[in-house]
């Protein structure tokens, strides 16, 4: 079934996320550096009164982050998971730094010609790949964006940043 998705480019690939998982798309913004965070976290920034992490999508995909440009965007996405320490109210937004937002349109990732994807244990957030008018687009599932050990690391860093 086609679902409205936000399509962006990171590390030379086209990725997409369901629009219902995106809280807001922001222009490139400055983030506060956090001490000793993993290399895929650019830092922390304030979103609607809450301090949330800013994740670099290219680094998360294993590529090097290109120089910052005006067309860069920050996708504020809902991350829902079962760890009650992080999500006392069920939703925990995270900023995702992408190279550029290409478009927003309907994509059927459940279509017959869609590829289910080959997610690794550390890359479960990468979903199926669909052939679209923009090219091959792979679905990103924010609920699988972080592995449990990454969440533990984030919790420690957020607690350090809060103090």
């Amino acid at each position: 079934m086609p679902v409205l998705s936000v399509i962006w480019r990171s590390a030379g690939s086209l990725l997409a996320m369901h629009a219902r998982d995106v809280v807001e798309v922001l222009p490139p913004l400055a983030s506060r550096p956090a001490p000793a965070v993993p290399d895929w976290v650019r830092g922390l920034f304030v979103f609607r009164g809450r301090l949330i992490p800013l994740v670099d999508c290219a680094t998360l995909l294993g590529a090097s982050s290109p120089p910052d440009r005006m067309m860069n965007r920050v996708l504020v996405a809902r991350v829902v998971a079962g760890d009650e320490r992080l999500w006392p109210v069920g939703n925990w937004p995270v900023g995702i730094w992408v190279e550029s937002v290409l478009d927003i349109g309907s994509i059927d990732f459940d279509a017959a010609d869609a590829h289910p994807g080959l997610a690794s244990p550390t890359g479960k957030f990468l979903g199926p790949v669909a052939q679209t008018r923009w090219g091959l687009v792979q679905l990103v599932r924010p609920s699988h964006l972080f592995a449990p050990d990454q969440i533990d690391t984030l919790i420690q860093r957020l607690e350090q940043a809060a103090t």
Binding site: L4, R20, V25, L26, V101
Partner: peptide
């Protein structure tokens, strides 16, 4: 134009969240 692009994307996301009633605004 850049701000308009971001605003139109966020408007489309909000329209999607509004369900069927937001289809026109999409």
């Amino acid at each position: 134009a850049d701000q308009t692009n971001i605003l139109s994307i966020n408007a489309a996301i909000e329209a999607e969240r509004a369900g069927e009633v937001g289809a026109g605004f999409l």
